[in-house]
Write a protein that binds this DNA or RNA. Structure first.
Length: 280
DNA sequence: ACAGTATTTCCTGGTT
DNA sequence: TAACCAGGAAATACTG
């Protein structure tokens, strides 16, 4: 089975975490218009948006009650500021702002300026990560943790993607990377896996609990998960082979426990937090 | 520039 | 044979 087949449509089409330069160029339109208006999001898309916002702001997924966002796009769009605060506490304002900006961008944001380029390479690059951070003071985290997107929202500064920091003379092997974004320490692999697992109703058959209370789970679509992880890390050459190596390193740290004899099965270890139902 | 962490990449060899 | 699993070794990416 190909990876494309493994990936649910919504994920292939919508899930990604591009770097700033790609985000900006993808702000263009076509991917955004009618069918991507938040008003028309499915529950799953709402969930994706939520996840991406948490990622972007480095908010632990367990810190907000996801059940309050078991909504489709229309319901989401009907929420006002108060509703967001009620639903997500201190994270509410971030979400509110994020949604407002998505709406704005769908409506007016994209102009011809960025409609360059070949759709193919941008097609898998779009929204959640392109959520602009909100500008008001987030009292609970430092602005330095934010993406430096403030500027990227301004069309004129967006196109030039200056590959900031490192000179990086010798190139890497395999990995296709363009611009090193200021990628705040994102979610770790095991947290990424955990977060997919946490909401099975929205997990499109990628990973499944084998024993919920024991923390045993199984990959159903190993390569698809690897692709998603790769997207999150902006690494298009990620494979299950490599992802699983990283998983095996978790054994020593007791973030995972070994489950032998069962292919694609892993178990959370004593150092993995946030996966138990009681911790949700 | 540098050290440390967390992968990522590659590889050999074994198993299902 | 394909798809996994085990880990070692070394390279990378990023952070402080």
């Amino acid at each position: 089975m190909s990876v494309e087949n493994q990936l649910p449509a919504t994920w292939t089409t919508h899930y990604s975490c591009p770097d700033v330069s790609t985000v900006t160029s993808s702000y263009t339109g076509r991917l955004w218009s009618q069918d991507l208006h938040p008003q028309n999001w499915s529950k799953y898309q709402v969930w994706e948006w939520l996840q991406q916002n948490l990622d972007m702001h480095q908010i632990d997924a367990t810190s907000i009650p996801f059940q309050n966002f078991d909504l489709d796009g229309r319901q989401l769009c009907n929420m006002d500021y108060q509703d967001f605060t009620r639903a997500a506490g201190s994270v509410g304002p971030i979400l509110f702002q994020s949604l407002a900006e998505v709406k704005w961008n769908v409506q007016y944001g994209q102009t011809d300026l960025f409609t360059q380029g070949d759709i193919k390479t941008e097609i898998d690059v779009e929204f959640p990560c392109s959520m602009p951070p909100f500008k008001e003071e987030p009292s609970f985290y430092s602005t330095s943790e934010l993406f430096d997107l403030k500027s990227s929202l301004q069309p004129n500064t967006m196109l030039v993607s200056p590959a900031p920091s490192s000179p990086d003379p010798k190139r890497s092997r395999g990995r296709t990377n363009q611009v090193k974004r200021h990628n705040p320490r994102g979610t770790h692999l095991w947290e990424f896996i955990r977060d997919i697992l946490l909401y099975p109703e929205r997990n499109p058959g990628l990973i499944k609990w084998e024993d919920r209370s024991d923390g045993v789970f199984r990959f159903l679509k190993s390569e698809a998960v690897a692709q998603l992880w790769g997207k999150k890390k902006n690494n298009s050459s990620m494979t299950y082979e490599k992802l699983s190596r990283a998983m095996r390193y978790y054994y020593k740290r007791e973030i995972l426990e070994r489950v032998d004899g069962r292919r694609l099965v892993y178990k959370f270890g004593r150092n993995a937090r946030g996966w138990r139902e009681s911790e949700k």
